[in-house]
Design a protein around this nucleic acid. Sequence first.
DNA 1: AAAATTAGTTTGACTATCGAAATAAATCGT
DNA 2: ACGATTTATTTCGATAGTCAAACTAATTTT
Lengths: 155, 155
Amino acid sequence: MKKMNEAITLEFEELNSELVDVFNNVMWIEEAALKQSDFSDITLKDMHTIDAISMYSEKSASQVAKMIHLTPSAMTTAIDKLVDKGYVERRRSNTDRRVVRLGLTHKGRVVYRAHQGFHRDLAHNLLKDMQPTEIAAVKRAIHNLVCYLANVIKQ
Amino acid sequence: MKKMNEAITLEFEELNSELVDVFNNVMWIEEAALKQSDFSDITLKDMHTIDAISMYSEKSASQVAKMIHLTPSAMTTAIDKLVDKGYVERRRSNTDRRVVRLGLTHKGRVVYRAHQGFHRDLAHNLLKDMQPTEIAAVKRAIHNLVCYLANVIKQ
DNA sequence: AAAATTAGTTTGACTATCGAAATAAATCGT
DNA sequence: ACGATTTATTTCGATAGTCAAACTAATTTT
């Protein structure tokens, strides 16, 4: 174990604890915000499904399932619900009639944009009142994290 | 709508998308890591319960329930499971025999420390190869986020 | 000491999820 | 071109997590 400067250790623990705080709370806050919104009939998980389907490229049901780590069967029922509620459309592919192409309805696109807005607010508030050099540092840190997580996945 | 420098806008979108990536993946990675570990009999939610109970202060069941946004009834069944599996202990308080004080068993403390280690790794990798001034910037950014989220909760 | 409050548990209904089997369409080997 | 295999999705049955409401027991208020 490396001997560390005490002040730095303390700094680190403070950061760590705030980081834990963010991770533990973001999901819950997002869920709660959704419940109070005009789209209270969907959960955050539904929202992530909608996000994975997203605006433009038409993905197949199993592609979306993989993206959000759901089994195909769970995907089917999730889509059923979102189709019933009018957020998502199922279209059988013309070139391969086994695959189901998923797309957002108008309502789906509205809620997708609203959710993107939420994330944009998060990012804006992360960078609140920061200088370009500081912003660069933050960006690098987030990138570090993304790379680290990507590595963890690979193993 | 404010007119923005295009390069800065692009920078921002890149950061935003990585941020979304982190939020979407951390939970899943944590869950997967847990499944492959020696503690595959608990879920990430169980882990958060254990984390809320934590090492030292003896909290009541309802205090823990509030911390992790669970109803008392859900808390009861969650604790039942963790008691069965040997991670948590229930003790009726002596001063007020309605309240249940929760504590970690030896096994519970081991898994708690392991989980803390996971979070510490995250924080270390966030700050990988960064200078003190950069670290300060990152810290301020995370703090911004914590404050923003705290405000969202209040409304 | 009766009524109200508080902490936690039990019960019943509902939802999400998974894995296995079923279905249906495409492709491969001959 | 035909049957066998593979692929994409769905259906079904089982399990687990959640909530709200009813309930029990302990404590506090009046």
